[in-house]
Write a protein that binds this DNA or RNA. Sequence first.
DNA 1: CGATTAATTGAACCTGGTCAATCGGAGTGG
DNA 2: CCACTCCGATTGACCAGGTTCAATTAATCG
Lengths: 244, 244
Amino acid sequence: MKKGINCRNCPLRKLDIFAPFSDDDVRFMETFKMGEIEIAPGKQILSEGGDAPHLYTVLSGMGIRDKVLENGSRQVVGLVFPGDFLGLQAGVMSKMGHSVEARTQMRLCVFDRANLWNFFRSHPGRAFDITWLAAMEEQFLGDSLATVGQRDALQSLAWALFKIYQRGSGLNLVKDGRMALPYTQRDIADALGLSLVHTNKTLAKLRDRQLVSWGNGTLVVHDAPALAELAMVPLEPPERRPLM
Amino acid sequence: MKKGINCRNCPLRKLDIFAPFSDDDVRFMETFKMGEIEIAPGKQILSEGGDAPHLYTVLSGMGIRDKVLENGSRQVVGLVFPGDFLGLQAGVMSKMGHSVEARTQMRLCVFDRANLWNFFRSHPGRAFDITWLAAMEEQFLGDSLATVGQRDALQSLAWALFKIYQRGSGLNLVKDGRMALPYTQRDIADALGLSLVHTNKTLAKLRDRQLVSWGNGTLVVHDAPALAELAMVPLEPPERRPLM
DNA sequence: CGATTAATTGAACCTGGTCAATCGGAGTGG
DNA sequence: CCACTCCGATTGACCAGGTTCAATTAATCG
């Protein structure tokens, strides 16, 4: 018997940012699931340009998606949070467009890529959900692009921290306006196309304005509405989404 | 009988950047297809934040995907070429993350969104292809993000023009190193997060270096390998992809 | 305790933005 | 056919947001 395969009691399912599973879906996911693995901080999970035999759903921990250019500069294309689905690009196109690396200890739910096809054949509802997730990712990247392309440094950081806070809220990671944020300033700088130095100074500015502070691995949001306004994003949380 | 519904003779199918259809797929697409429409230059096809009753495949013409921020600035998130599939975000999430607008006269193949679900149920292969396209779009946006975030103006422009040239080549739009490019400098500036003025000056620099020239609606690539090197992208064309 | 990594701060510099004026082509009304 | 207008492209001058360089502090670790 495979161990730890019990989707029914998966703690993520209880969160209401995730769409509910039918009983049939739960049973099916249990057959699709191969097991779980633990990843240590700093370890790479998927590699840019590479194929991958597995797909993953993040159960806990945080990570980063990034790609590097020939000249060595790095672009962070996304932060990885619990509930995120990893490896879809390799799953359908046999080639990842970015790498994924753990930033904290992580626990992942492992699926066999070879079964993805059966998946589409036997469970169109779940296939639809996968497509949903891909479209969601596309939408998020469009937002990121608009940030890097059009917002100035202060607005960009406000946008990033607000988005993080919003995601954290949905995942019950926020207590009292505070959440753990295990990234370095360099990670965020590389996500926003800013230099590390300027990111640091801009962070100080946000702190001075009493909007957010981030230090010692903890993000504290003091004024979410003002932050959202500066970031030019709606205050409302995003819609409910599928969980694989 | 519906008019103009003949996927078998679709001119796009013949191009070998597109994966071949099985006979069954052709028949099925003909039932999924509702008809075709013509769109005039400047007309909006899909609207950011809106839902949409239809999905489209571009048969001919070019367009643009963009989104605008509260402060009025605009980010172009992609150029639309023949073979592109439009409206997937609204199709699965009921909300577009960007608008789509025609830049030339366009002809679109129209699908009924309400049938998307049957689609997934009865033709898992085609559902898989849709997911492929979504993942491809995600990958492209990651590249764009890396461009806007990490490349300087000259590299960015080289990247954009080379990508355009590469796509044009696969679509047989390039004759003798030249292809029609119906965008304004503002469009490209907004795609790269650059000002119009600086885009113009950078374009002049590329022209002086004898790499590419673009004017009067025509793009001329003089030295593709050098352009690709400046842009820091591999010279080889992308893999074959599905066509809806 | 030396070594390494992250955060912080100051100062000089530069890529790219803003402002403003001009030019050329296309369309329009007279 | 010409005057007028509008829009996109082009160019020069000036300015600033953000980068780069450099040095210091703080924390973690073997």
